[in-house]
Simulated assay, not measured.
Amino acid sequence: MADNKTLNLVELQAGMRVRMNDGALAEIVENPRDGFWLIVRYIDHPTDPSLIDAGEQQVFATDVATLET
């Protein structure tokens, strides 16, 4: 996680939005609650717009920067 902030992935719910380290914005589709992975769909991706229409993607805990409110 970025900036020495602690984000407990186990607590995140489907429908929540997270900002990724690369600036992308993703919505959680499913959380396997293992603390390592989230299944998301990208809403915005500044470096790879093709991911917006790519369906569900797995992202690793260290790729998540913050929870968007």
Rank of each mutant, 00 (worst) to 15 (best):
L67K: 14
W37C: 07
R33E: 14
M1E: 10
G23N: 07
V40E: 00
M1T: 03
T69S: 12
A61L: 04
T6V: 12
N21G: 12
F36N: 10
V40T: 04
D3G: 08
M1K: 05
A65N: 13
M16T: 04
A2Q: 07
D3R: 14
E30D: 03
V64R: 05
V10E: 14
N4I: 14
W37R: 15
D44K: 12
P46R: 04
A2V: 09
G35T: 03
L7F: 07
H45P: 00
V40D: 01
R17N: 05
E27W: 00
H45E: 06
I52A: 07
F36S: 13
V59P: 03
E68I: 15
P49G: 14
N31R: 02
A54W: 08
S50F: 11
N4H: 14
G55F: 03
L51V: 08
D3T: 13
F36A: 10
G55C: 07
V18P: 01
D44E: 14
N31I: 00
F60Y: 09
R17E: 15
L51M: 13
A54E: 09
F60I: 05
I28N: 01
M16N: 02
Y42L: 04
Q58E: 13
N31K: 03
L7E: 05
R33V: 00
K5F: 12
E27S: 10
L38N: 02
A26N: 04
I28P: 00
V18E: 04
V10S: 11
D44R: 11
L51R: 15
L51E: 12
T69F: 13
D53G: 14
Y42F: 15
L67A: 11
L38E: 06
L38F: 01
T47F: 14
E56R: 15
L25M: 06
Q57A: 15
D48L: 09
N21L: 12
R19K: 14
H45D: 12
N4L: 13
T47S: 13
M1A: 12
N31Y: 02
F36D: 13
